[in-house]
Structure formats: structure tokens, C-alpha cells
């Protein structure tokens, strides 16, 4: 392991406890959870910006207990990037590598910010600030990247674009990264591994897809907010609609555009309607026949797992479950609109 972090940090109101193992090589670990879960605290402990109350951080065999933040080979991307407002982009990027203009040039061209070097940080858009901040971090030649909510400061339109750039970058760099986020799209897109935190504790760890589909804790399910995550492949696209093979079923969705064919198919349980027979006419594009394979109480709702060729989760009221006579083995139609299907590019195939 490149990094072994067993962290205990006592705050005024909160106790944060987390264990992380980061292997060497290009792998991205997502620290996922709602705000106040202690994610940023874990990051700051690893960086040395917070002292541990107890525990240990071992990096590449070296105990970091008495290593100051300056001596840790970490690239830390702050949530709002923390570009120095009194320095131009060139000097921000060169801040760590002052005596090496070559490094500045190299990272600037890698992140495509060459033409921004003479600007002030305040003259940059959100996406540009993020790239400059990443360039500044990389100029230090870090061996571990810590990214605190790298996309949360961006507006929705920019975020999708920057996210796909970030995926590319993280794969190219070959440096392990720990990424803090509360966005499940980030988690699925960027993460090889995922650690879900809430209230200062780790609730679950594993590959993101597994965590989302098999939450072992109600809080994980709530935090994720998406009950069905399966892999799918686009069979054909026409007129803004794409037809996907998912398991042995076929789904209609809005065409996500681009060239990718492999996707994570995400469907929220609330978006799935259950019907006894097949409706004659409906605006919903997807009518899947299946059998109920599991029923569980989820708060005020009932969680129904239906085998429609893949495992689909629907959330319905208890009353509806009773009225429909839902029992294990019952046959049912699951109905949802094409727009209820969220596609996330699956780069790991």
C-alpha cells in the first residue's frame, strides 16, 4: 500500500474516524457523503493540516506523524481552488517550482492554460480556475492527489465538461487520487473505489457501482439517492433517442450524445411506477415486464426489487404495495420515462 491512513480526529461536536488504504498507481478513491460527514477532515488530516487525535498515517513506509505539511509530497486541490489573488496565473502555477520555468510551461500546456499565464485569477472562469489550480498542484510533482470537492464550485454546464477532462487527466497522470464529493455522478465517473462517510464514520467501502446498488446501510442509500445502477450498452440511436441493452432487457433513453456506447444506467426508485397490466397508451417509453424478487420497508416507502432482465428498484407507498398485491414472485409491469434514466459514461470497460 502506498498510503495507510487510520484517522481519529476529535472535533468540538464531532468525532471523525476513518481508515483508508491507497494502492500505488493510478487509482481514484472517492470519499463520499453529505456535508458534515467528516470527508474534508480526513483529507486535511492526511495533508497534515489537522493533527490526528489518534491513529497513524503511513506513506510509502514512512510514518507521517512528525512530518509537516510542507514535506508531504501531496497535491492538495482546495474546494474553491485558493488561487493567490495577488499573483498572476504564471506565478500561481510556478509558486512551488519557482526556479524551474520549464515545469510551469510543461504543466500549463498539459492543462491547456498556456494562453492564460498573464491573467489574474479573478479574470478566469470557474473552469479555468480549476485547471490553473490543478496545474499549480501538479507543478509540485506530487505523489498523491487530494481533491476536495473539485467540481462543486462550477456551474452545472461547466461541471460535466470539466468532469470528463478530470477523468482523462487522472488516468494520464498515474498518480493515485482521493476525491471528496457529495455528487453521485462524480463518484461513478471518477471513482475506482469509494468510501461512504456519514456523521464522522465510514458506512461502506467498495467499488462505486456496488455501493450504489447494494447499500449496506439505509444512510448510504439515502446519500446515494439512486437505487438502480447497472451497466448498459447502446444498441442504436435515432432521433434523440437511444436504445440500450441492459441485462436481458432493453431501455429507451434520451441520447446522451458523444461516441461512447458503454454507460452506467442509473434510475431513481421514485421514478419507477408499477402497474398490474400494460397500459394502452402512455407517455412513458419503458414498460418492462418482470417478477417481484424482493420487498423491503424503506422508511415511509416500500422498496420493491423487480427482476426485469436486470434488478430494478422501485419505491412505492405502502398503500400502493398492498393495493397491487405485491408479493415475492408476483408479475408486474415497471414503467418509467426515458428521461428518468440517467446515463453516466463507463470508462472502465
Amino acid at each position: 500500500m502506498l498510503l495507510i491512513a487510520d484517522i481519529e480526529k476529535q472535533f468540538k461536536g464531532l468525532r471523525v474516524e476513518a481508515g483508508l488504504r491507497i494502492p500505488p498507481g493510478s487509482s481514484t478513491t472517492i470519499l463520499f457523503g453529505p456535508s458534515g460527514a467528516g470527508k474534508t477532515t480526513v483529507l486535511r488530516c492526511i495533508a497534515g493540516l489537522e493533527k490526528l487525535s489518534a491513529g497513524r498515517i503511513i506513506f510509502d513506509g514512512q510514518d507521517w506523524a512528525s512530518v509537516p505539511p510542507q514535506k508531504r509530497p501531496i497535491g492538495y486541490l482546495f474546494q474553491d481552488y485558493a488561487l493567490f489573488p495577488h499573483l498572476r496565473v504564471r506565478d500561481n502555477i510556478g509558486y512551488a517550482a519557482r526556479r524551474s520555468p520549464g515545469t510551469v510551461k510543461q504543466v500549463a500546456s498539459m492543462l491547456k492554460v498556456d494562453d492564460l499565464l498573464d491573467r489574474w485569477p479573478s479574470e478566469l472562469s470557474g473552469g479555468q480556475q480549476q485547471r490553473v489550480a490543478l496545474a499549480r498542484v501538479l507543478a509540485r510533482k506530487p505523489r498523491l492527489l487530494l481533491l476536495d470537492e473539485p467540481l462543486s464550485a462550477l456551474d452545472a454546464a461547466t461541471r460535466d465538461h470539466v468532469r470528463s477532462e478530470l477523468v482523462q487527466l487522472l488516468r494520464t497522470l498515474g498518480i493515485p487520487a482521493i476525491v471528496v464529493t457529495h455528487d453521485w455522478v462524480d463518484a461513478l465517473t471518477l471513482g475506482d473505489q469509494m468510501v461512504v462517510m456519514s456523521g464522522g464514520r465510514v458506512l461502506q467501502a467498495g467499488p462505486p457501482q456496488e455501493v450504489f446498488t447494494r447499500p449496506q446501510h439505509p444512510e448510504v442509500a439515502t446519500a446515494a439517492g439512486v437505487e438502480t445502477v447497472v451497466t448498459g450498452r447502446i444498441r442504436w440511436r435515432e432521433g434523440g433517442v437511444a436504445l440500450l441493452d441492459v441485462g436481458s432487457a432493453q431501455l429507451a433513453t434520451a441520447d446522451p450524445g458523444g461516441q461512447e456506447v458503454d454507460f452506467y444506467v442509473c434510475i431513481r426508485g421514485e421514478d419507477v411506477t408499477l402497474e398490474k397490466g400494460r397500459a394502452e397508451q402512455s407517455s412513458a417509453r419503458n414498460h418492462l415486464r418482470g417478477t417481484v424478487s424482493g420487498i423491503a420497508v424503506a422508511g415511509v416507502l416500500t422498496k420493491v426489487i423487480i427482476d426485469v432482465g436486470f434488478e430494478l428498484v422501485a419505491l412505492v407507498t405502502r398503500q400502493a404495495a398492498t393495493d397491487l398485491g405485491l408479493v415475492k414472485g408476483a408479475e408486474i409491469f415497471a414503467v418509467f420515462k426515458a428521461s428518468a434514466v440517467h446515463l453516466i459514461p463507463n470508462a472502465r470497460i
Binding site: A47, G48, L49, P68, P69, Q70, K71, I74, G75, Y76, F78, D80, A82, F84, P85, H86, Y95, A96, R136, V137, R140
Partner: peptide, 27 residues
């Protein structure tokens, strides 16, 4: 001076003294 700028300087490997002259005083 916002704490994040001081911490950003540390995380870029710059000592306390140098951070003083390169971040705190200029700001």
C-alpha cells in the same frame, strides 16, 4: 488573510517563513 491561502502555500511545499513573505505580507 484567509487561512486557505496560507494552507495552499504550505501544501505547495513552502515554509512558514517563505509563506510569510510570499503570501501574508503581499496580501
Amino acid at each position: 488573510v484567509e487561512r486557505k491561502y496560507i494552507e495552499a502555500s504550505w501544501m505547495l511545499g513552502v515554509s512558514n517563513l517563505e509563506t510569510f513573505f510570499r503570501v501574508i505580507v503581499p496580501q
